[in-house]
C-alpha cells in the first residue's frame, strides 16, 4: 500500500531515541513510530497526536493557514485558581487553549479544519473551543468550504460552569446552519471523544469517521460502572462497539485517513 507520509528528513531526530509503547512496552525507535503515522508497529497502539502532527498527516505541504489565533479564556465565573491553571497549561503546552483551527488543502481541495488538543486541560470544551468551532463553521459556510472536525475531549471545562454547557448548543446550532446551507461536515472521532463534545458537534457529522479503538462516549466508563455497580465488558464504548451499534460510518486507519477523506471530498465537489 502506498504511504502518504509527509514527514521530511529534516524533522527526523539525529540521534537514536527509543520510545516505550505504553501498551505493549516494546522499545521502538522514535523515527519508526513517526514513519508509521504514530502507531506502534508491534501492537497497533495509536499515539495521541498534536494538531501539528495531525495536520502534517492530512494537509498538502505548506497549505495550512491558521484562523482565530490567540483567543484566550476569560475567567467569567471568577472561579478560584482558574487563571493560574490556564497560565500553567499555557506554559506547559505552548498553546492558548484546546483547539487549533484553520484552512488546509487535501489533495488540492481547500477545507476548513479544527483539531482539538488533549495536551491542554484534556481538550475540555470551554468558551474558546466553542467560539473557535462556531467561527470556523461560519467561515466555512461563507467561503463554501467543506468542514472537518478532528474531535477529542475529556468533556466540559468545569471552571467555566454553565458557560461551558452553553458551548454545546452554540456549536451545534452553527454546525446545523452550515449543514442546512449545503455544506459537507466530516467529523473524525479520536481517542477520547466524550461528554459535552460527543453530545454536540462531534456527533453531528454528515459523515462520522472514527480512529480504531478510540473511546467514544457520553458518560465515561468510570461513571457508568459507579451507576450500575458492575464492571463494563471489554471493548465497551470503543470505536468498534459504536460501529456495530450504528453510531459511526467508518473506522479508518491512520495510514488511510488522508486518502479516505480525499475520496469523500472529491465526491462532494
Amino acid at each position: 500500500m502506498e504511504k502518504q507520509n509527509n514527514i521530511s528528513a529534516s524533522e527526523r531526530s539525529t540521534k537514536e531515541e527509543l520510545i516505550e509503547c505504553p501498551r505493549c512496552h516494546a522499545m521502538i525507535d522514535a523515527d519508526i513510530i513517526r514513519d508509521n503515522f504514530k502507531v506502534c508497529p508491534e501492537c497497533n497502539h495509536y499515539y495521541t497526536l498534536s494538531p501539528k502532527s495531525r495536520l502534517r498527516m492530512l494537509a498538502d505541504r505548506k497549505s495550512f493557514k491558521e484562523l482565530d489565533k490567540g483567543l484566550r479564556a476569560v475567567n467569567l465565573l471568577d472561579f478560584p485558581d482558574y487563571e493560574d491553571k490556564l497560565a500553567k497549561a499555557r506554559a506547559k503546552s505552548g498553546l492558548d487553549d484546546a483547539i487549533m483551527t484553520g484552512i488546509i488543502k487535501i489533495d488540492g481541495i481547500k477545507v476548513a479544519i479544527g483539531v482539538m488538543d488533549t495536551r491542554f486541560l484534556m481538550a475540555s470544551m470551554g468558551t474558546v473551543v466553542g467560539e473557535k468551532i462556531t467561527r470556523l463553521a461560519e467561515y466555512a459556510q461563507k467561503h463554501n468550504l467543506p468542514l472537518i472536525m478532528v474531535c477529542a475531549s475529556g468533556g466540559a471545562r468545569m471552571q467555566e460552569g454553565l458557560f461551558s454547557l452553553m458551548q454545546m448548543s452554540k456549536t451545534s446550532a452553527a454546525i446545523k446552519r452550515f449543514k442546512d446551507a449545503g455544506g459537507l461536515y466530516i467529523s473524525l472521532l479520536t481517542n477520547p471523544t466524550t461528554g459535552g463534545v460527543s453530545a454536540s458537534f462531534a456527533f453531528l457529522g454528515d459523515i462520522i469517521l472514527a480512529e480504531p479503538e478510540a473511546l467514544i462516549c457520553f458518560a465515561g466508563p468510570r461513571v457508568i460502572e459507579q451507576t450500575i455497580g458492575k464492571k463494563l465488558p471489554d471493548g465497551f464504548q470503543k470505536a468498534e462497539f459504536l460501529l456495530e451499534h450504528g453510531m459511526v460510518d467508518m473506522i479508518v486507519r491512520r495510514d488511510e485517513l488522508k486518502s479516505t477523506i480525499s475520496r469523500i471530498l472529491k465526491m462532494h465537489k
Binding site: M168, S169, S172, A173, I175, K176, R177, D180, S198, A199, S200, F201, A202, F203, L204, I216, C217, F218, A219, V223, I224, T227, I228, L232, F236, Q237, F241, H245, G246, M247
Partner: peptide
Amino acid sequence: AYPGMEAEANGQAAAIAENLAEMSA
C-alpha cells in the same frame, strides 16, 4: 442524562447532539 450501558449503546451522545442542533432552528 442516564449514564447506563443501554443508553450509551443506543447513542446518548448522538441523541442529545441532534436535539441541540434541531432545537436551535
